[in-house]
Design a protein around this nucleic acid. Structure first.
Lengths: 323, 323
DNA sequence: TTGTAGGCGTTATCAT
DNA sequence: ATGATAACGCCTACAA
C-alpha cells in the first residue's frame, strides 16, 4: 500500500504538501501541485480513510437502523438514503433491530459512526443507550410525510363512489410509528368531505404487536362483530388491507362490489394482489434521501432544512362504486 | 471519550496491560485483571475500533454489493449475511451497483474493508477494478444452490398432474446469474421423469435485459406464436411467471384449469398473487448467511468450507390437474 | 508557500 | 507477568 509519505518522496515535497493538494486545505503553487498529482497517479495512491478518521474523528460512515428488510418500505428508504450518502462520500451500513440485542449496540458505539438514522419503532430504546453517536429519527431530522394529501384524496374518492360509512383499521402501534398521523388525517379528511365518522367503525389497538395480514384479518373479525353498517374500509397499511380483504371475502363479501378497501404504502404487493389494491403512495425513496441528506447536514454542524414528503392516492381495483 | 490510557492510569497499570486484558492477548494475573476490569467499568471504556484498525489493518467492516433492493431475493440475502456478520463482530454495508459508477468504487477501495460479497451480475466488472479488497462471488465462497431438488420435485409434481408438455421460460441472462443451472436441472428432471422435451417450447434469450413481468409476457407471446401444444409452463423466476399468467389469461387460458404455471424464488408476491403461485423456494437467508460466514473464513485466512443450499418445490394454486 | 513534528488510540515488539 | 515505546497513516498547528 502506497502512503502519503511515498508520494511525498516521489514528488520531492513534504507530506504536508501532499495533504494540502489532496484535501485542498491550503494553497499550493501550480508547479508543485502538478508534481504531486503526477506522483499520486504514478503510484496509484489512495488516502487511507482509517488513518484519516483516527486523526479527524470523522469516519464518513453512517448507519441506518431498520426493523427488517421484508417490508418494501424500508428497502426503498435504504435505496434513497444510499443515493444521498454516496453523493457526499459516505458509506452506509444497515443494522437490523433483531441483531441489536445480540451485543450489537456496544459494538456499534465503538466504530465512530458519524451518525445513525433510526427508522424503527424502537427508536427511543436505542437512543437511551447510544450516547456516543448522533442517533436521529425522522422527526429529529426535520422531515415529515404529508399523509393529509393522499388520505384526503382517498376519502374524497370513496365519497364520490358513494361511500359514507368508512371503517378505519388502525393497528396497534398507533402512537409510535406515525400511524396516528394517518388517523388524524383521516378524521380531518372526513370533516372536509362532510362524512360523519362512526366511532364504532374505528378498529383500534388490537392484541397483536404487528400490523400485518393477520392483524387485518383480526380487525375485520372485530369489525363484523360490531354489527355496524359499513361499505368501505381504510387500513393503516397494505398488509392489513390485504388481510381485511381476505377476511371479508371469507365472510361472503365481494371486494369491491360489496365493500371497497384502501391500503397505505403502495407496496409491490398492492399492485399484484387480486383485486389489485387501491392505496396511498408515499415517496419513500425521497424520504430516505432527505433523511440522509439532513443527517449529513447535522453531522457537518448545519441545521437540517425542513422537508415535507408528498403522498398520493392510487386507485386500483379494490375501491369502486358499490354494485 | 475515555481511552486506554485513562484506564491504565485509573488502574495504575500500563497501557499494554489494559490491551492484554481487553484482547486476552497475554496472560494477566487475576489481581491486575480485576483492577483493570473495574477501571473499564468505572470509566465506561470502549476500545476505539478506528485506532485498532489502523494498527491491525483489520476493520471488521465488510460490504455486500447488490443490484437493487427491490428484489426480495437480495434483501433476504442481506438479512442472512448480517446474521452471520454480527456473530463475528463485523458490521456490514450495502452497496448498490447503480451508485458504483458515481465515483463510488475508488472511495470504497480506501476504506480498508476486510471483504466484499459480490451478489451482482456485474461481478466481473467490479473484480477487475478493486484489487485492494477481497471481492468474492458465491462461487469464490464455495457455496452453491441445489436447484436440482426443487426443480425435480416440481417436474415430478407436474407429471403427476398429467402434464407432459412443459414450456420453459428461460429469460435472457442465461449465462450470468445461474439461471442456466435451472435449465440444466430442468432437463435432467425431465429425463428422470421420462418427459420428452420439446425444443420449441423452450423460450430463450429474449430481447430485453431483464427477467421481470414484461419478460414473462413477451415470452408467452412468443410461446403462443409457435403454435405448439403445451399444458404447463415453468419460468425462471416468480415475476416472469406472473407475467406469463397474465398474458395467458389475456389470451383466454385459465390458470391452472387450462395451463399450470410454476415460478422460482418463492418471493412474497408468489404467496399473495392470485392465483397464488406454485414456485421453488430457495433458502436465500441461509445462502446469505453462509456466504458471509465463508467470507469471514477467507478473511481469517482459512479455507471456506463447501456448502450446498437446499431448494424445495412449493405447490400453490397455479399448478394443478387439468380440468 | 512549504516543511517539521506532535498527536489521534491501538497493537506489538522488546526489554525488564 | 508487566511496562516502554515505536509503528500504523494522516492531520494540523507552528516554524521557517
Amino acid at each position: 500500500m502506497t502512503t502519503r509519505k511515498d508520494v511525498a518522496e516521489y514528488a520531492g515535497v513534504s507530506v504536508a504538501t501532499v495533504s494540502n493538494v489532496v484535501n485542498g486545505t491550503k494553497f499550493v503553487s501550480d508547479e508543485i501541485r502538478a508534481k504531486v498529482e503526477d506522483a499520486i497517479r504514478a503510484l496509484d495512491y489512495r488516502p487511507n480513510m482509517v488513518a484519516r478518521s483516527l486523526a479527524t474523528k470523522e469516519t464518513r460512515h453512517v448507519a441506518i437502523l431498520v426493523d427488517n428488510l421484508k417490508n418494501g418500505y424500508y428497502t426503498e428508504m435504504l435505496e434513497g438514503a444510499q443515493s444521498a450518502a454516496v453523493q457526499y462520500g459516505y458509506i452506509v451500513s444497515f443494522i437490523l433491530c433483531d441483531f441489536l440485542n445480540q451485543g450489537g449496540i456496544l459494538d456499534i458505539a465503538s466504530r465512530g459512526l458519524d451518525g445513525i438514522i433510526l427508522a424503527t419503532v424502537r427508536a427511543g430504546e436505542v437512543k437511551a443507550v447510544m450516547k456516543q453517536t448522533a442517533c436521529m429519527t425522522q422527526g429529529d431530522l426535520n422531515v415529515e410525510i404529508d399523509y393529509a394529501k393522499g388520505v384526503s384524496q382517498a376519502v374524497h374518492s370513496l365519497r364520490k363512489h358513494g361511500h359514507s360509512d368508512i371503517a378505519f383499521l388502525a393497528g396497534t402501534r398507533i402512537a409510535e410509528d406515525g400511524s396516528h398521523i394517518r388517523w388524524d388525517c383521516f378524521r380531518e379528511a372526513c370533516r372536509k368531505e362532510g362524512i360523519r365518522i362512526n366511532r364504532k367503525l374505528i378498529i383500534d389497538a388490537n392484541a397483536r404487536q404487528t400490523t400485518d395480514e393477520d392483524a387485518g384479518i383480526e380487525a375485520v373479525q372485530r369489525l363484523l362483530a360490531t354489527g355496524e353498517h359499513f361499505t368501505s374500509v381504510m387500513a393503516i397499511n397494505d398488509l392489513m388491507a390485504i388481510g381485511a380483504i381476505r377476511e371479508l371475502e371469507r365472510n361472503g363479501y365481494r371486494v369491491p362490489e360489496d365493500v371497497s378497501v384502501v391500503g397505505c404504502d403502495n407496496s409491490q404487493l398492492s399492485k399484484y394482489y387480486s383485486p389489485s389494491l387501491s392505496t396511498i403512495d408515499v415517496q419513500v425513496f425521497e424520504l430516505g434521501r432527505t433523511m440522509m441528506h439532513n443527517l449529513i447536514d447535522v453531522i457537518r454542524g448545519e441545521a437540517p432544512g425542513h422537508k415535507t414528503i408528498a403522498s398520493e392516492y392510487i386507485e386500483r381495483e379494490s375501491a369502486a362504486d358499490r354494485s
